[in-house]
Each structure stands twice: as structure tokens, then as C-alpha cells.
Amino acid sequence: MTFGQLPYDVAHLLGGGMLLLSFMLLYQRRVGAVVNALATQGALLAAAAAWQGFVQDAPQLYLTALIALGAKAVLIPLALRLLIRRLALARGVDTALGIGPSLLAGVALVALSILVALPITTGVAAMAREDLAIALSVVLLGMLMMITRRNAILQVVGLMSLENGLVLAAVGVAGMPLVVELSTAALVMLVLVVAGVFVFQIRGRFDSVDIALLHPHRGEGG
């Protein structure tokens, strides 16, 4: 596949859109906007999966798309919004690393993933390596989000975005069995539930969801 071929172009553009949204996640200062961006990313992922299903003629990918759309674009964002409202959490984003520096670090990570993806994919069609680089970038940006944000909710969002990147990489490869996709989705659901409970627990004990407050209770040092 090369440029100018519609199947490839659309898939490529959807991947690029997801990368753009990963940057939006890093850029936003309000939790509500972050959740919106996450929902959009989920919707794009669903579209990417559906498109791949159409192109590769693999009906199971439609199911993946449906799961992505239902869970990531609708249910989980709704749940997160509910959490925010129920807990009356602060609407602002509490950063450990400023917005500008984290964006800069994000671009550095993309450059890194390009550098990593290049040698691995020599021999593959020149176009596939850009896709791999994009998926890897989305994963790394999700991790960056988890590291650089203090709110527990945002860390959950980072985890979700990371998982989106993994799924994006998975649907791009022809013949990927659905089992893996289902299990990863279930895993993330599980993690989300755990995280939700976690949030409630912290809230109950410390009146805050700032995880820095947990450190004195770790029992190390004194």
C-alpha cells in the first residue's frame, strides 16, 4: 500500500487523528475536556477498527469496533463524568510537569518511537512503519500522561489512551485474532473498575484524590 490509495490513506489519517488526540489529552487543562478528548479518541479507534474490518474483509473487527465504540467512546467517558460529579472533584488538571514541557516531551517520545520503528520495519512497506510509529507514539504518550498528571482520574485516562494505542497497533495487522482484543478490553475494564474503587477509597480516607498524599502512608522511611 502506498499513498494515494484510499484504503491506506483513510486508515493512516485515522491513526494520525488518534495521535493528535493524544496530544490534546496532554494539552487540556480541564478534566471535562480531557474526558471529551478521550471519548473522541475511542470513537476514532472504533472507526479505524471498522475500516480495517472492511478493508481486510475480517468481520470480527466489526465486533472490535463495536466494543470500542460502546465502551471507550460512550460508557467509560460517561462513567468518568459520573465519577467527577459524584466526587465533586476539582475540574482543573494538576500537573507534575507543566503543559509546555510535557508537550515537548511528547514530541521527543514520538521522535523516539520513529527511531525505534525504523530499523525494526526495514523491509516492510515504507508506509506500514509510519503506522507502527504512530501506534507506539500513542502508547508512549499515554504512559507520559500517567506519569505527569497528579489526579487519579487523569491517570486512568492515560491508561485508557495507552490501551487505545495497543488496540490500534493490533487492528492494523491482518489476521490478528479477536481473542486478544477481547481480553485486553476486559483487562482494561477490570483495571478501570479497580481504579474506580481506588478513587473512592482515597476519597474516603484522605478527602483528596491527589496521590502524593499517599506517600507518607507507605510505611517507608519515616
Binding site: 499513498f3 493528535l20 496530544f23 508537550l103 514520538v110 520513529i114 515504507a126 510509529a133
Partner: peptide
């Protein structure tokens, strides 16, 4: 003072565009 962040994000996106282009056109 949010404007520099807004434009800085635009700057980084443009840099990203160039970086992806280096890869996809097989220049690198």
C-alpha cells in the same frame, strides 16, 4: 498567558508533521 501554550502546541504539531514526513517519504 495561555496563548503561548496554544501556539506552542501548534508549533509542536507542525514539527511532528515534518518528522512523520521524514519517515513516510522514506527519506530517513
Amino acid at each position: 498567558f495561555r496563548v503561548p501554550e496554544f501556539l506552542g502546541a501548534a508549533l509542536l504539531l507542525a514539527l511532528l508533521a515534518a518528522a512523520l514526513l521524514f519517515v513516510s517519504t522514506g527519506l530517513a
